[in-house]
């Protein structure tokens, strides 16, 4: 990891990542809140009720973003897993591990909101529809990743095994989706779902886009925060981590950590010159 001229590689050093996240996250929270407030205002006070579904359709404003985030985060998880397996960049495993709980939560929330949307519009909380079923399986994939990572005593090995699982899962997601859809179409039981409805009103679309932005930014912020904690905990013995925990990580400490010449737990007398 000696690519000091390539800025991307800079953040593979946990110390640099930590500082970047520390600078980024304070902006992300208000941005997410702003988007959410604007989106909720548009969604509840500007967008008119749907002529068929009445006000129940407003669940869409959180259902679509959570469903999206679930899938997107799984792809990201697999991508970080692949990076970790190929280049053994520790930071990639930290990121993958930080993504998993948020991905699982988003997938769960998309199932929950989907059920509550389905109840008034289709008359049932749950159908074994292609999308619902494959989302449920996606949730299991997230849980499997987390369980495998947690079950291994050796963090490095556990991370690599879990990364491999994430990749196999990602290859399988389309196969699962198509097979489930194929299965569902052949069984043509309840044909309640017509996703391509009439085109959305502009205010609805605006509300939806704002909410999607809010969820993206929220997910970014929370994942970065979790990754920070994970990075600190893994590097607990290093100078930079202890300085960072005390809130006074200096530039030199960071650079020393990035080049990898920091000793295992040197004395910390030098700190305090922020």
């Amino acid at each position: 990891m000696t690519g000091r001229s390539i800025p991307w590689l800079k953040f593979t050093a946990p110390a640099n990542f930590y500082t970047l996240a520390q600078r980024l996250v304070p902006w992300l929270w208000p941005a997410a809140a702003l988007c959410a407030v604007a989106g909720l205002y548009m969604g509840f006070f500007v967008a008119p009720p749907d002529h068929q579904q009445g006000d129940a359709y407003r669940i869409l404003f959180i259902h679509v973003p959570t469903a999206w985030m679930g899938m997107l985060l799984y792809l990201l998880l697999a991508a970080y897993g692949a990076i970790f397996l190929v280049w053994r960049i520790k930071m990639a495993d930290i990121m993958a591990r930080a993504i998993a709980p948020t991905g699982a939560l988003m997938t769960f929330l998309s199932l929950w909101t989907g059920a509550l949307w389905g109840a008034p519009t289709w008359g049932t909380f749950w159908v074994w529809d292609a999308r619902l079923t494959s989302t449920l399986i996606l949730l299991f994939l997230f849980l499997g990743y987390m369980a495998l990572h947690a079950a291994s005593d050796d963090r490095e090995k556990g991370g690599r095994a879990a990364s491999l699982l994430a990749i196999i899962g990602a290859v399988n997601v389309p196969i699962i989706y198509f097979s489930v859809e194929w299965w569902y179409n052949l069984h043509q039981g309840v044909s309640v779902m017509r996703s391509d409805g009439p085109s959305m009103a502009d205010s609805m679309l605006a509300a939806l886009l704002l909410m999607i932005a809010a969820f993206w930014i929220y997910a970014g912020a929370i994942v970065l925060r979790r990754a920070q904690a994970e990075a600190l905990s893994r590097e607990a013995r290093t100078e930079w981590a202890q300085a960072a925990a005390a809130g006074r990580l200096t530039r030199e400490q960071r650079e020393r950590a990035a080049v990898g010449i920091e000793g295992n737990r040197p004395p910390l007398e030098s700190g305090g010159q922020t």
């Binding site: 399986i137 299991f140 369980a147 699982l165 899962g169 399988n172 699962i176 097979s179 489930v180």
Partner: peptide
Amino acid sequence: LLILPLYVP
């Protein structure tokens, strides 16, 4: 938990 989801197809 890991494998049964992959058995689905």
